[in-house]
């Protein structure tokens, strides 16, 4: 039974598996951290300025269309086969979903609510923190979820460019023509993605403003 073989392989190298998982999670943390820090303020700006929106949103849309493998592999000529290379490429992949969703989130706030906040005498800062951001949060989180799944999936490919992560079992499985080792990588990544989806969709539900 190949599933049993795969489990045995992983169990016999528990520390290696843990390190690979750690590295995979590090990729996710780096890419999403930078993605959120850059794209949430940027999305706030593009939702307000037509000029900024035109250039930046089109660039984000184009970036999203380009296959992730191409983006990942193109980092090599510049940064070599390394963790940095993979982390940079993965960050680039995390940007479009967060940016496009943040933009849509701030655009989608009903003008009447903004007016009401203004009429209540709220300052600019109060409006942002107490009205706009809470209303935009669920949609922003949808973008973060999409970006997380994208990064988890693409980080598997990072092993091909020497980046480590759970993809090492995939590259090793190919090198040794061993389907059981391939399955170790595939099952781990699939479970990671499903848990991330569950966790983040739960968070999204919490953030939703009661109607």
């Amino acid at each position: 039974m190949i599933l049993f073989e795969a489990f045995q392989y992983a169990a016999s190298r528990a520390t290696e598996w843990r390190d690979a998982l750690g590295q995979h999670l590090l990729f996710v943390a780096v890419a999403l951290g930078i993605g959120i820090i850059v794209c949430v303020p940027l999305g706030f700006v593009t939702a307000r300025s037509r000029l900024a929106a035109l250039g930046i949103l089109n660039a984000a849309n184009a970036l999203r269309v380009i296959p992730s493998l191409a983006i990942l592999f193109l980092a090599i000529p510049y940064f070599g086969l390394s963790f940095t290379s993979a982390a940079l490429a993965l960050t680039l992949l995390a940007l479009p979903p967060i940016l496009l969703n943040t933009d849509a989130a701030f655009r989608g706030i009903a003008p009447t609510l903004q007016e009401a906040a203004l009429a209540l005498g709220m300052t600019w800062r109060q409006r942002l923190w107490r009205v706009e951001l809470p209303l935009a949060l669920p949609v922003i989180l949808t973008g973060v979820r999409a970006a997380t799944l994208e990064v988890i999936a693409s980080a598997t490919l990072a092993a091909f460019i020497g980046g480590g992560g759970l993809g090492i079992y995939v590259t090793r499985g190919f090198a040794l023509f061993d389907n059981a080792i391939l399955l170790v990588g595939a099952i781990s990544v699939a479970l990671l993605a499903l848990s991330a989806e569950l966790l983040l969709s739960g968070l999204e539900r919490l953030a939703r403003v009661p109607q």
């Binding site: 988890i152 391939l182 399955l183 499903l194």
Partner: peptide, 21 residues
Amino acid sequence: SVVYTIPSIALIILLIPLTGL
């Protein structure tokens, strides 16, 4: 949507025991 959550490379590998490489 559960299927969609599984990363593509993982899904292809999971199909190998059924369809071969």
